[in-house]
Simulated assay, not measured.
Amino acid sequence: MIEARDVRLGMYGHSNQVAHHALYMYDAAGQPWKTQANVREVLSRLYTGSEIGQGYHGDEDNGEQSAWYLFSSLGFYPLVMGSGEYAIGSPLFKKVTVHLENGRDLVVKAPKNSVKNVYVQGVKVNGKRWDSTSLPHSVVSRGGTVEFDMGSRPSSWGTGKNAAPVSITQDDQVPTPREDALKGAGALFDDTSATGATVSTVELPVTGDTEAVQYTLTSSDRAKAPTGWVLQGSADGRTWTDLDRRAGESFRWDRQTRAFTVGEPKAYGHYRLVLTGEAALAEVELLS
Rank of each mutant, 00 (worst) to 15 (best):
M1E: 15
Y12E: 08
Y12V: 06
Y12A: 11
S15Y: 15
Y24K: 03
A29E: 10
A29L: 15
W33L: 02
T35P: 00
A37D: 10
A37Q: 10
V39I: 14
V39G: 00
R40A: 10
R45V: 05
E51V: 14
G55Q: 13
Y56N: 00
Y56G: 02
E60W: 03
D61G: 01
Q65N: 07
S66P: 00
Y69C: 07
V80D: 05
M81N: 14
S83R: 12
G84A: 05
E85Q: 13
Y86K: 09
L92I: 05
E101V: 01
G103A: 08
R104W: 06
R104F: 02
P111E: 15
K112W: 02
S114G: 03
S114V: 10
N117D: 15
R142H: 08
P154D: 09
G158V: 08
T159W: 04
G160Q: 14
V166Q: 13
S167I: 03
Q173Y: 02
T176N: 10
R178A: 07
D180M: 07
A181W: 00
A185K: 11
G186V: 05
F189S: 06
D191T: 07
A194W: 04
G196E: 10
G196V: 02
T198V: 09
S200T: 11
S200H: 14
S200G: 06
V202G: 00
L204F: 09
P205I: 02
Q214D: 15
S219K: 02
K224H: 04
A225L: 08
A225C: 05
G228I: 03
L231R: 08
Q232T: 05
Q232F: 02
A235T: 05
G237M: 15
G237C: 11
D242W: 03
L243E: 06
R246M: 12
F251V: 07
R255D: 01
G263I: 03
P265Y: 10
P265D: 13
A267K: 09
Y268C: 00
H270Q: 11
R272A: 14
V274G: 05
E278R: 05
A279M: 04
E285A: 09
L286Q: 00
L287R: 11
L287T: 01
S288W: 03
